[in-house]
Every structure is written in structure tokens, then in C-alpha cells.
Amino acid sequence: MRFLRDDGHLARLLGRLAGGALPPLPPAAAAALVTGVLLAAGLGAATGITLFAPVAALLLAGAASAHPHGGRHDPLAVPLLRGAEYLYLLALGTGGGVPGPLVFVLLVVVALHHCGTVCRARQGAGPPDRAARAALGWDGRMLLAAAGGALGWLPFAFGALTGYLAVLLAYGAVAGWARTPVADLADTGDEPGGAGASTT
């Protein structure tokens, strides 16, 4: 369950420093709340207070990344982190002058990455593979977008992040297909009623 959080390197580092002692739901809820408040205070524009939101979310939610997530309500941390990331990218992109189609495509690519993580969990595939781990995590993606806004390169940052994630998704899909064994086709030509059965 813990890998469904899609934590990046910085969040996992904070989790190791905290030793897994923090329960995941309260920090994730606080991170989502703080992100929403900072976005509302900055009116979604690429201002200093808005650009600080990923740092606040990372410091709050990242420290709980090493928790086993075995509690009854611990899985609720995952949609809270997802919502905070989607809301941040949407608000920052629309308020920072990024073309609407580019913001939409980035959100779709991130959502597809999250869907892939969930599908792996349902199929019992275990933790994310190398391509999924290279997707920077929710914290890395938010920080990269914030850095682009701070440098005045927000459209470029959104475009680069979209292209990078799209390449990772394509690579992960091809690699997954290559690892999937192809079932031998049953030869039904000589079976009664099969394609090769006599009609006389």
C-alpha cells in the first residue's frame, strides 16, 4: 500500500529520517489543506507564496512516507496526495500563463502514471519498476513545476515535464509488454467441433 503514495526521493528521505513513526493520514491531510490555502492566498498565480506550497507539502507529508500504512484509514492518504498534486499543477499552470492544452495534457499524463501504479498493485506486481520510480514522485513533480515558476520558465517546465513523463509511460508500457509471456495458442484443428473437424 505504501508505494501507492508515489513518493519521490526527497519524500522517501524524510520518511527514513522520521523512522516511520508518523501515521500517514494527518500529515497528508495537512499537506493537502496547506496546499489549498497557499493556492487560494496566491490566487493561483506563480507568486512566492504559491511556489512555496510544494515545500510545505513535502515537509508535512514526506515525513510519513516510511510508515507501513497498515492502519484502517491510512489508505486515505493516497487520494489526498493525488488531489494536492492535481490541484497544484492545475492552479499553477492556469495562473502562470501556461497554455490550457499543455496543462491538460500534463494532468492526463500524471493521471496515467497513477493508474499504472494502481494496476500494478491490483495485479500483485509489487513495488514500481525503474520507469515508475523515475517519474520523480508527487513531490518531485510539484517542486519541478515550482522551480520553473520561480525562474520564469513555467511553460517550459510544464512542457519538459509532460514530455519526460510521456516517454517514461511509453517505455514502461513497451517493457511491460516485452516481459509478458505469450500463451501458446491451443491447436483445435483436430478436436471435435474445431475448425478442422469433418463436416461429413
Rank of each mutant, 00 (worst) to 15 (best):
M1E: 12
R2S: 05
L4Y: 00
L4F: 03
D7Y: 14
D7V: 09
D7Q: 08
H9A: 15
R16G: 14
A18M: 02
A30N: 12
A31D: 06
A31H: 06
A31C: 04
T35H: 05
G36A: 13
L38M: 12
L39P: 05
A40N: 06
A45W: 08
T47P: 00
G48N: 03
I49T: 15
L58N: 00
L60T: 12
A63R: 15
H67E: 10
P68A: 00
R72M: 01
R72A: 14
H73L: 15
D74T: 04
L76N: 08
L76G: 01
L80H: 10
R82P: 06
R82E: 15
L87K: 02
L87V: 10
L90E: 03
A91T: 05
G93F: 03
L102G: 00
V103N: 08
F104H: 06
V105K: 07
V105A: 15
V110T: 07
A111Y: 05
H114M: 07
C115K: 11
T117Q: 13
T117G: 15
R120H: 14
R120V: 11
R122T: 15
Q123C: 02
G124N: 01
P127Y: 00
A132C: 00
R133I: 03
L136T: 07
G137H: 13
G137S: 06
W138T: 07
D139G: 14
R141V: 14
M142I: 02
G152H: 08
L154M: 10
F156Q: 10
A157W: 04
T162M: 10
T162F: 08
L165T: 09
L165S: 03
A166Q: 08
A166N: 00
L169Q: 11
A170M: 00
G172D: 14
A175V: 03
W177M: 11
P181M: 09
V182W: 01
A183W: 05
A183R: 10
L185C: 04
L185D: 12
L185A: 13
D190S: 12
P192Y: 04
P192V: 00
G194E: 11
A197R: 03
S198E: 08
T200V: 00
